[in-house]
Design a protein around this nucleic acid. Structure first.
Lengths: 340, 340
DNA sequence: CTGAAAGCGCTTACAG
DNA sequence: CTGAAAGCGCTTACAG
């Protein structure tokens, strides 16, 4: 491959001058700059990334630590990945994707080897074991998801508490008094998926305040179990007129279940989910939902991360914990309950 | 960070000796090796990736060029990404993920800068404009998907012709004589999605040989269009008893459509799709299908790529074009047609 | 079996 | 405005 020495020689200048002419980090005569740029183009010069990283201590790469857990719904993950990847590229960074089941080892390897200038963590758990590693690393990190301890990292997440409140208030305002909330599997909670109980606790509290009944259940995150469980649930609770879903698999499975039970929303049952618009389209879900905004969260996380990497904010600038306000996207799946 | 000089000093040896002691590329006395390894562990030494890449001309990174096209079904893409990522990690490589809409520019940048040792291309089109760039690159490339011209690259794909034949033969053997094949949108074909007509042509030919009717249509790749189109299609062709789907979105939309039309498979209609088992589970699809084997294809592509990167096969070893034989996974959605 | 040195391809103070 | 040189942290011939 052609290197900067070749460019310099062809342009008749020193390598340093060639470097400066291309980076613009030092004043260079117009003529020399033009000549260097011209020659670089002709020779098809592209700087060697490893060499540049070594010299500048900047890899221009962001590590993306995703995990495809069997009990999380993979298509929902994809949207975060897309948001992060697109934003990173716009800001000049490439994405090194790790889906290693052993997240801590992967994180340590990527940061210690200086392959990445910063990392974005997805699937963050309440007591995420990757966080100590991240705090010990020299690079900054941004999380999508709220851990118990946010020190040393920037955090972005949906305001799940508010989401729970909004979902319940919405149905209560319509006159519903018998609600069911379907959450992620118990197993997700045990693993530290705090968003499950954050939404649930807020929903329970709101229901209590409003004096309506809210039954809460954990349900499977995959077919065919989730379908069976929804069937059983609806069969056992005919009095329920409002259904809240904080479980993507349940949302995806519901249309079939309702069809089979000859129920329709909102005539027989009002339904509100929590997922992204993109998700709704992919799975053709006709239910109003709290927008989970994966693209936006991914974008926010990368933007903040890049600000830290490029020292646009002081090294010791306080970390941010930012919540996206839940927005209820109306798809017409809720209405006043049918008169008893 | 601690570097190899720190390790060498702490172990009381030369940097070269420290390097050899860790890599094992040169004989080193047992005592020295132990001491170096011990010290490296204590100091938490991890080699600097950029420096190593510069010295060895090996980044230990594979570029993964995916494209999230609006007319391809994103969840189906994810499975290829997972297959590639997992296999790469097993073989010691990290994945640099590009989902840049401008694939040729991304490919050129990644290869010219030596950020990657090789690349895997997804969404390969008949006349893929990334291929000239790849052939001009110094690094080897492996494709998932069959282009018109395979010179200079290793190619892995499902045998779509055979898939078309198997689908038709299966239904013909059951006694069906009126079939419909729903393919990807016309737009995918125009963009060079050869797998669409590879399957379709083979299906048409097989149907002709068997003397059965096969109607072919292109349909949308997203909701809600695809649902409407399936409705119209079934309404307009009540004589059809067998439905073939080479369109993931159509498969995902079909359960709802059948429900609404009060049809069920296989009682009223025999259905055969073409998607992965994982996809079937995610979307709860009860239809028998040709397994598209994204994980296996991703694995094969990475394995071959690494073989080339590591020169386990001669530089001029002939390129391979390998097809995965379609396997029909029986989910009970086909049966003899209902007597007229 | 081990060490001193060159070199990978950049960037960036240091000099002029 | 430009150049010669040092240095980033490795690996690997070259010497002994």
């Amino acid at each position: 491959m052609v290197n900067i020495g070749d460019v310099a020689r062809a342009a008749g200048v020193a390598r340093s001058t060639a470097s400066y002419a291309m980076s613009g980090k030092r004043a260079v005569s117009d003529e020399v700059r033009r000549r260097v740029q011209q020659v670089a183009l002709e020779l098809g010069y592209t700087p060697n990334a490893g060499a540049r990283a070594l010299a500048t201590s900047r890899a221009m790469v962001i590590g993306l630590l995703a995990q495809f857990l069997p009990d999380e719904f993979a298509p929902a993950m994809l949207q975060y990945i897309q948001g992060v990847t697109n934003t990173a590229r716009d800001l000049g960074y490439d994405i090194l994707l790790s889906s290693d089941a052993n997240g801590t080892a992967a994180l340590k390897r990527l940061t210690d080897s200086r392959m990445v200038d910063g990392v974005v963590l997805l699937n963050v758990a309440e007591d995420d074991e990757r966080l100590p590693v991240l705090r010990a690393a020299a690079q900054p990190g941004a999380l999508v998801g709220l851990p118990g301890d946010c020190t040393g990292v920037d955090v972005f997440d949906l305001d799940f508490e508010e989401a729970g409140r909004v979902m319940v208030e919405h149905l209560v305002a319509l006159g519903h008094r018998e609600l069911i909330l379907v959450s992620q599997p118990q197993h997700v909670v045990e693993r530290g998926g705090a968003y499950v109980w954050r939404l649930q606790n807020a929903a329970v509290e709101t229901a209590a305040q409003r004096g309506v009944r809210l039954r809460t259940v954990h349900a499977a995150a995959a077919q065919p179990d989730i379908g069976r469980e929804l069937h059983a649930l609806l069969g056992a609770n005919p009095e329920a007129t409002g259904l809240l879903l904080n479980n993507e698999a349940a949302a995806a499975a519901l249309p079939t279940v309702l069809h089979e039970r000859r129920l329709s929303a909102p005539a027989d049952l009002s339904v509100v989910g929590r997922y992204s618009d993109e998700f709704a389209r992919t799975f053709s879900l006709p239910y109003s939902s709290i927008e989970s905004a994966p693209d936006r969260l991914g974008r926010m996380a990368v933007r903040q991360l890049v600000r830290r990497i490029e020292k646009e904010i002081a090294d010791d600038a306080p970390n941010v914990v930012r919540f996206v306000a839940p927005e209820l996207v109306d798809r017409g799946s809720t209405a006043p309950p049918r008169p008893a």
